[in-house]
């Protein structure tokens, strides 16, 4: 399996979307391992044996204190060097839902926003994800406008439809300059929108995110974090009204599959010679 695309699906107490995330990668021929963070911390498994790091959804450590905070600290404080090297080698990271919260709270996303920050290896936290404006857990489908340039989102339709399921998904930046830089750098990957792609209200924007942001990338586009769950629209029958889509009875994949396919393809074409 020397030439296989290897994905590490990182899990710990409270991770719960690990199996379907691994399934999504495996469906495109990758080898995906579910690895408990204890194994990385103890060194029995090395991050460097993998091409893609996936941080799946769930409630790591119960989202106690705030969502993703404790695992974000573990990554930042205990595995920081490994992660830096991993990212530096041009490998891929995807964080979905809780995984996105972890990437943001560890400072991995959005990462350095300009040349100066890059030079200083600035990995401070520049944004956060807080309680939905509705103060409720929201499990619903959301239309998303795709933008930016990322290996993960290449070839996606202009507007995609993915489910969200979170209580803390409101994206907030430290200050307006961060938002401005994100937009300027093309780091905004997904924005909530109406079915027609227009500016949403509630519940199309289910959480009240600033600028309707649902997902962002780092400046290279190789690290993607998003609140919606592409792995939950991986199969055609995941769609909330697939029974209305007549042609679909024989169709296999849903709109979320492309993201995982992109990741695997990128590694095959660019990282494995």
């Amino acid at each position: 399996m020397k030439n296989s695309v290897k994905v590490i699906v990182l899990r710990t107490a409270g991770t719960n979307c690990d199996e379907e995330t691994a399934f999504a990668f495996k469906s495109f021929g990758a080898k995906a391992d579910l690895v408990h963070i204890n194994k990385l911390l103890k060194g029995t498994v090395s991050l460097h044996d993998y091409h893609i790091l996936a941080l799946p959804g769930g409630f790591t450590y119960g989202d106690d204190i705030e969502s993703g905070r404790i695992l974000a600290n573990e990554l930042r404080l205990h595995l920081g060097e490994d992660l830096c090297r991993f990212i530096g080698e041009g490998k891929l990271i995807i964080g979905i839902c809780n995984g996105f919260q972890i990437l943001v709270k560890s400072g991995i996303l959005p990462g350095a926003l300009n040349a100066k920050e890059k030079k200083n290896h600035d990995s401070s936290q520049k944004a956060t994800l807080i309680s939905n404006d509705s103060a409720k857990f929201e499990a619903r489908w959301a239309h998303l406008k795709v933008s930016g340039q990322s290996v993960w989102t290449e070839g996606l339709e202009d507007v995609v439809y993915y489910p969200v399921a979170h209580a803390e998904g409101k994206f907030v930046t430290k200050d307006p300059s961060v938002l401005k830089a994100l937009v300027k750098n093309g780091q905004v990957a997904f924005r909530y929108c109406t079915a027609e792609g227009a500016k949403p209200g509630y519940p199309e924007n289910p959480n009240g995110s600033t600028d309707d942001i649902a997902g962002i990338t780092d400046s290279t586009g190789r690290i993607l974090g998003l609140m919606p769950h592409p792995e939950r629209y991986f199969l055609f029958t995941h769609h909330p009204y697939w029974t209305r889509l007549k042609s679909g009875r024989d169709k296999k994949f849903g709109q979320g599959a492309k993201i995982f396919e992109n990741g695997v393809k990128y590694v095959k074409n660019r990282l494995i010679k």
Partner: peptide
């Protein structure tokens, strides 16, 4: 809507359906 009814990736017919 407060219950996650799609985690584990096996959802086929959800509690709410329709257009």
């Amino acid at each position: 809507r407060q219950y996650d009814h799609e985690v584990q990736g096996g959802s086929v017919i959800k509690p709410f359906v329709g257009v």
